[in-house]
Design a protein around this nucleic acid. Sequence first.
RNA 1: GGAGAGGUGGCAGAGCGGUUGAAUGCACUGGUCUUGAAAACCAGCAAGGGGUCAAACCCUUCGAGGGUUCGAAUCCCUCCCUCUCCGCCA
Length: 426
Amino acid sequence: MLDPRLLRGDIDSVASNLLRRGVRLDSAAYLKLDSRRKSAQKKVDELRNERNTRSKSIGQAKASGADIQPLLDDVSNLGERLQKAKTDLESVQTQLDELHLGLPNILNESVPDGLDETENAEIRRWGEQPVFGFKPNDHVEIGERLGMDFASAAKMSGSRFSLLHGELARVHRALIQLMLDVQTRQHGYRETYVPYLVNAKSLTGTGQLPKFEDDLFQTAGESGLYMIPTAEVPLTNMVAGEILDAGDLPLRFTAHTPCFRSEAGSYGRDTRGMIRQHQFEKVELVQIVKPEQSYEALEELTGHAEVILRLLELPYRVVALCSGDIGFAAAKTYDLEVWLPGQERYREISSCSNCTDFQARRMLARWRNPDTGKPELVHTLNGSGVAAGRALVAVLENHQQEDGSVRLPTSLQPYLGGLTQLSPNA
RNA sequence: GGAGAGGUGGCAGAGCGGUUGAAUGCACUGGUCUUGAAAACCAGCAAGGGGUCAAACCCUUCGAGGGUUCGAAUCCCUCCCUCUCCGCCA
């Protein structure tokens, strides 16, 4: 959510910033609605003031034993007038709230302009794209000989699910272990086990709701809980409604969770293999920081995700998402794109965002600023460190051998009892 | 699932339907005292919105939402959550 004061005070600059995303904000209509809200609010306040004052004097009169009947007659229709004013206010406020919740975050000035992912800006590359003495296969061809089983998954769940057997499942698990160990032991993140089902309020806090409900799976029944699309939701919502001590910041949380996404609107995209699934595993990184430190923290957090790809010896590049591709809650985002020889292109494996105070304002996450003594909004960041399914895909494709086996990076071997490669007949 | 208890400020914990946004304690901040610290004493200390140069001042908030009333932390209803016991269960 954007600062309502910013909207009131400088709506033109907000509108032009949002326009970079392709979002059109009708400034005049907004200001009109806001001024309607203000006058409705004022009306309610006045009536309440009158009621409070009069009620108080009735109390005093009664205490002193005076006749209160005339006073009571005096306030006879106050309640009715107040009720009407409240109804008016509520209807304006509801419209305004809906508008507020539907507006994306303000972009940082460093975000490049662009319409879609083709206009993202490459920041740096790491690693050499492997050169094969044979035609490299994609992860499906490699994986199916190693225990990747889409047929079984389709039988029980349909498309966009996968099932792993044997050593392949073990490698998938090892990747997660490696990621968690690096992030907790080397980068100071606190490992957290979180709920996988969350309420609508939490999803509103991080920005998935109300606008992106179609992307979520919701459970049937009265509770109507949603399955988390990312651990960012539970991890960030830990600080919802809290006032944090300055000394406790920055907070760094990590969690391994499954992620569930309906992938509505992506029909026909990435239908092959386990690139785009309804369910995948991810190790997530979240930081809660003081506002002045958030952009520094974004660089750092991106680096924390990069370490994983380097340990896995996977060539990648870092791109700054352009204005048309960046997510709803983010002010700035770096994607890590890993090289996939099977597709001969870089594919997203991590997305690291500074959400500034956008989520904090929605969930009222604050810290007490010692300089002002007042509670102020924190800044929140999140990033994948990294997606496990895609990491597995990248390992298979980048480290494949001509005989169909796959070399395992040395960093992973301790998690696999010293196993050095995956072989088709094992 | 059944029975009971309870949800109040950063924390603990009072609160006959009427100057209660809320006693008290702890924590915190400032001051006095001290060479310094501690102790003691004095003072301050919830959040959000509006208002103001800044104040004053006004409105809202005692788990959430409804209701009764001139007036609700206090009474009624619904829901949520926590705790204790029983049942069931990984």
